[in-house]
Simulated scan of single mutants.
Amino acid sequence: MRFETLAIHAGGDPDKETGALSPPIHLATTFEHGPAGERRAGYEYLREGNPTQDRLEQMLASLEGGERALAFASGQGAMIAALQSLPTDSEVLVPDDCYTGLRVLCSEFLPEKKIVARTVDMGDLALVASACSERTGMIWAETPSNPRLKVADIAGLAAIAHERGALLACDNTFATPALQQPLALGADIVMHSTTKYFGGHSDALGGALVFAKNDDLFATVAHRRHITGAILSPFNAWLILRGARSLPARMAWHCRNARDIAAFLSGHEAIETVNYPGLAQHPGHAIAAKQMRDFGGMMSLQVAGGREAALRVAGKLRLIRNATSLGGCETLIEHRASVEGANPVSPPNLLRLSVGLEHVADLIEDLRQALAG
């Protein structure tokens, strides 16, 4: 079954009781069982599992080509569940350019379990290979990365990880399975902030892990989610399930708009650099073209003139909104260094742009007036 068809039908079987084509929402927190705890319908308590979540997880596994999936209350919850599944005294390699939340997890929370996080440029396979040690239990990739849109060779990283008996986990939030399927390239775990493109409407918080195999690793993380309670609400599960049905169509529009905007910005005198893997001059363009179906709706621009010039541009925009998050219908921009906390690592002139579904001519006109003089 082709991806576009799968997105509509995975997890979307008609309701057995009513025949409804729209999946029902089961909001119950508890389910009837027998006097000795017999699960009459397979469920006991919301934190352990529920029918709406099951549909979502079936859909996520199908779209990523995995055997099992787990939904979480947030992308951050999904990340920490995967990372803390590593044994005590192990090591994880993480990208030098990555989501701020991952950086904080590695510096503040993994040390509590004596897990050491080491930073490496994931675009340099030789460097990654040399950074591995006998303690390395996982390589965590993020491609394209947040916010510089660096590209990593997923198949190459998988080969390095597996040669050393380690796992490869890949944050696929920016690309989505509509554009890239890391499990097919050798990854063991795929992570998503489903808040973003899966939900697609900036109204449902969620996260997910998709596992290549239904094995002990999956069971370990599933048990951790059950006991720690990082469960997704049924209503948000339903919203994300609904959003996934239009994912292929939305991603095509996001990509189309982003290509035109990247072309406009890359030729503008007020722009120092456009970080977008769809541009031929992007350092990761060849790898992105090899492992992605299209180049996505995310980019970042580095404004000539430094931090103050970047803030002036962001402040002059009329249609494009200054806001955190990405992947919604509306176009958003954000000065990343300003929101990264006490120790920002993004370039001070960098603005991250999540290209939405508006008419591209309106977006370009807004950017043009903001960049003028």
Rank of each mutant, 00 (worst) to 15 (best):
I227N: 15
T220A: 08
A20D: 06
G200K: 05
R103N: 07
D15M: 04
L60C: 15
S90C: 05
S202R: 07
T176K: 13
R47L: 09
D13H: 02
G77E: 13
G101I: 01
S130A: 15
P23Y: 01
S346K: 07
G341I: 02
A314P: 03
I333F: 10
F198M: 14
E91V: 01
K290H: 08
D203G: 07
A184N: 05
I154E: 05
R40E: 01
R336K: 04
D362L: 10
G297K: 10
P87L: 08
R39W: 04
F72P: 13
C329D: 15
F72V: 05
P111F: 07
L157G: 06
D216V: 14
L241H: 15
S107M: 13
A159D: 14
H223S: 15
T88I: 04
A337W: 12
R148W: 03
H282D: 14
M59F: 09
T119W: 11
A161R: 08
A36M: 10
S325R: 06
H268C: 03
F31L: 10
V355T: 04
F3V: 00
Q369K: 01
D362V: 09
L319V: 10
A280M: 10
I189T: 05
L205C: 06
P182G: 08
A289P: 01
I240F: 13
I320F: 04
V120N: 14
E272I: 01
N322R: 14
I115T: 00
P24R: 02
L149P: 02
R352A: 15
A159E: 15
A286S: 10
E4N: 11
G206C: 08
L105K: 04
R135E: 01
W253R: 14
T18C: 09
Y197R: 12
A71I: 09
L110W: 09
I80F: 15
D97L: 02
P23G: 01
H254N: 13
M79D: 07
R40W: 14
F218T: 13
V120A: 14
G101W: 03
Y45Q: 11
A372N: 06
F31N: 02
L102W: 08
